[in-house]
Nucleic acid binder design. Structure first.
Lengths: 113, 113
DNA sequence: TTTCTATGTATAGGCTTTCTAGGTATGAGA
DNA sequence: TCTCATACCTAGAAAGCCTATACATAGAAA
């Protein structure tokens, strides 16, 4: 997995984003994230499950157990709070990315004015 | 300071970027970063100094002590290794940002195909 | 003169987040 | 039966940044 350090602090946004298109169980969130990112984000389960539990504790997502072909599944969906949090985090990401571009771009194009 | 969590894992890139335009001492790095980011990144010293020491230990920057008006200053400059690292981290950032946009953007525009 | 503010460096301790590494279990295919 | 893919979980470690604090000088304000 590339971007090990970089993903820190952005995993919630990514997770909420893929769940915004519809409920998914944990394993599927990982796969969807990998696919949507063009194979760039390939999270270990040990990162994803704790993240989902954290989001659940914060009431940004809710979970429901089911059983498919003898396999138990925990399906997550966004709450209203989660949807609002996603909007806010999207804006935060935009601002953050813009600021980074300004700093990193440096001289080439006008940064701060 | 906004973006507390988000900056994690990107501080090295930001620091190297501002030092790429010329040597600066720690306090000035903070100010330059704040200015260049449009006041978005306002790092506490307790974040910046450890980061600089980390980069110094990795030989990405070198430091030189001087004294200006009775005040001691430690001026940092990029090494060749640091310059190469900056290039690599810039590319990583681009890839990372693109991947995040793909995931976050979701339905609105084609993400994975 | 004393105090406040800005400049300038530094570190210890703590918190949060992610990763590593391991575990459990089912179903399918070889 | 063994292995692989699916599907869940957690303990403990590592990393990185923040809070809080400390020290020191210069200049301005009181």
């Amino acid at each position: 997995m590339r971007h090990k350090q970089q993903i820190r602090g952005h995993l919630d946004l990514l997770t909420l984003s893929v769940l915004a298109d519809g409920p998914l169980h944990g394993y599927a969130v990982i796969e969807r994230l990998r696919a949507r990112s063009g194979e760039v984000f390939d999270l270990p389960e040990g990162s994803m499950y704790p993240a989902l539990h954290r989001l659940e504790r914060s009431d940004l997502i809710t979970a429901e157990w089911s059983s498919v072909q003898g396999r138990r599944r925990k399906t997550y969906r966004l709450t209203d709070r989660g949807r609002r949090a996603l909007s806010a985090q999207r804006r935060d990401w935009e601002e953050f990315a813009t600021a980074v571009r300004s700093v990193v771009g440096g001289a080439p194009w006008p940064a701060t004015n």
